[in-house]
Design a protein around this nucleic acid. Structure first.
Lengths: 325, 325
DNA sequence: TCTCAAAATGTAAGCGCTTACTTAATTCTA
DNA sequence: TAGAATTAAGTAAGCGCTTACATTTTGAGA
């Protein structure tokens, strides 16, 4: 079933059928109705590859994501899908894991599919070589959610995580805590910002930074429990509060402290749904994920329409206080 | 940059270039190397729409999902993406929410994109009209994860949730509990199975079913807290254990009981990562999601290769015991 | 009734690629 | 070394659709 078949059944030319499908030219009222009726009857849908070939677009946006395990990412995907779809685009989703190799492959695959644009969710490693992203951006516009890269054809929307982390840690210090532990599990881009914020907060309060309180740990319940147990065993006042790079780590920390029978304030990051699922509910830094995704979708549409939106947008996050602090 | 450009730069015809790209015919060694080199130098990637038009496939699988909020779905997406991609397919993801209208639109959109197959995750409403799915299946093979529909061109892989639920409730009864509360929030397909299992377990144990113990509740912390509080207020022995349709509800129930200062066994469903994130860790029924996704991916490949795999596969779930029971 | 612009429809040339079919260049056999 | 068999490369016809351009029809004004 193709456009020729429809044209024949209607006794018109394919040009006319195409015109009624796309509303791309004048068509007599009777003819239009007939064509629509036949399309309806036959259930014909125009071949999207042929249209793609003509328009050089299938209205597909490639989305590269690191890890679904973290609710932050699945939440981002959810927002993005909604926003993009409401703007008439569909989402080609590729999940690559944390390796740079995986990301490179993912980018190549998306470029090969001729997507209209590529959205990266939190995937830039600041210290690392990002030439693969720059190279990709020479072929198709790249949009970054929650990370930033200043390069040709790359647009970024991020939360000022440094400031947000600073605010969170300052809140702990203001409340009288002196030794906040900072837990993270991946040394990616955003992490450096959070650490800077952490340091700044201590500095602002006139404290020095104990480097032993900035620690990387595997993202698993066991690892966190072990780590905290070990620290507290050595010195039961080794730290007096916990700040984590994401809510999953915060949940593990919560579990660990409960396990150890001690209670200390905990602040997570991302303000994901998880924060309200655990008991007690997690205080967490809101990094404005929904707003970021909304903004990115706007940027995508703008760029594809030939407009030139700002290359970087920075939103401010804020601490959402719940039961753990 | 297209295949003509490459051909010209190599001093060969486009047929030859195409042959080296696809390995679809004999090419002289020197020629082949030259073509590969030029492709490498120019960074040429064949237009996937043109290939799609020829092959009538872009190796795209449409995936229709209900809700990312539930970790069950995001987990399923994660598994599917991995499995499909390792088989050379990419995933076009559409998230529709719980309405049948939304699903219908989603299916139409995917069909319009000429995907090779459509995977539905837990989306059949048994009582409802599923003609939209059957209609879709006339155009493109449909695969169902964790639900079932016996129709032309529809393949299903599901967990025997009835048996699994029965097993879980029986375990509660065996442990001496008499009045297990069953909480669910959506009256979709799988729910009926679970309820049957719940009933069967009580019947097996010689108990009658108290219909008031099968209750639907909004999927929110507040709703669950309110519900349980109300029940226990009326009669503090209104129920002596909680069984839920998914882990999110179980987490809410955990929160609610803790809030009310009572402790009762809880069993969730899906055995999602969430089960290990909350404290105490949730006992949960494992519905073999990873295996389902793996199997579905196999089925997709088989069907697209013209094979005829079994139309229905049923896996058995099992209760994973952790701290809450 | 005739003219002519405006509206409706048709024709055919791509979009970039694959591949059946054809032709040219090698290699092999006797 | 002629000629068959084999391998390498080219030609051109689509795949299903959009659209610039050409053609026909319609209807208003004179």
């Amino acid at each position: 079933m193709n456009i020729y078949e429809i044209a024949e059944r209607c006794g018109v030319s394919i040009a006319t059928v195409s015109r009624v499908i796309n509303g791309s030219g004048p068509v007599g009222k009777a003819t239009k109705e007939k064509v629509l009726r036949v399309i309806e009857e036959t259930g014909f849908t125009p071949n999207s590859f042929a249209r793609g070939l003509n328009f050089n677009s299938m209205r597909l946006i490639g989305v590269l994501c690191t890890d679904f395990g973290d609710p932050f990412y699945s939440q981002a995907i959810a927002y993005l899908e909604e926003q993009l779809r409401s703007r008439g685009f569909h989402m080609l989703l590729v999940c690559t894991g944390y390796t740079v190799e995986g990301k490179k492959r993912g980018l190549v695959e998306l470029v090969n599919k001729n997507v209209d644009a590529i959205v990266l969710i939190g995937t830039v490693f600041k210290e690392n070589d990002n030439s693969h992203i720059e190279e990709t951006a020479r072929k198709v516009p790249v949009f970054m959610v929650n990370s930033m890269l200043d390069a040709y054809n790359v647009y970024s929307v991020k939360c000022d995580e440094e400031r947000a982390a600073e605010q969170a840690v300052s809140a702990l210090l203001d409340a009288g805590y002196r030794k906040p532990l900072y837990l993270h599990s991946q040394t990616w881009y955003g992490n450096a910002d959070k650490i800077r914020g952490y340091r700044q907060a201590l500095k602002n309060a006139g404290h020095s930074v104990d480097e032993d309180l900035i620690v990387k740990v595997d993202s698993s319940a066991d690892a966190v429990v072990m780590l905290l147990a070990e620290r507290l065993e050595t010195d039961k006042d080794a730290f007096d509060a916990v700040f984590t790079a994401n809510d999953v780590l915060a949940a593990y920390a919560l579990k660990a402290l409960e396990h150890l029978g001690v209670s200390k304030p905990i602040i997570g990051f991302n303000n994901s749904p998880l924060a309200e699922l655990v008991t007690p509910e997690l205080s967490s830094v809101d990094n404005m994920l929904a707003a970021m995704c909304h903004t990115i979708a706007d940027r995508v549409v703008d760029v594809l329409h030939g407009k030139q939106p700002p290359k970087t947008t920075i939103l401010s996050g804020s601490l959402i206080r719940r039961a753990t602090f």
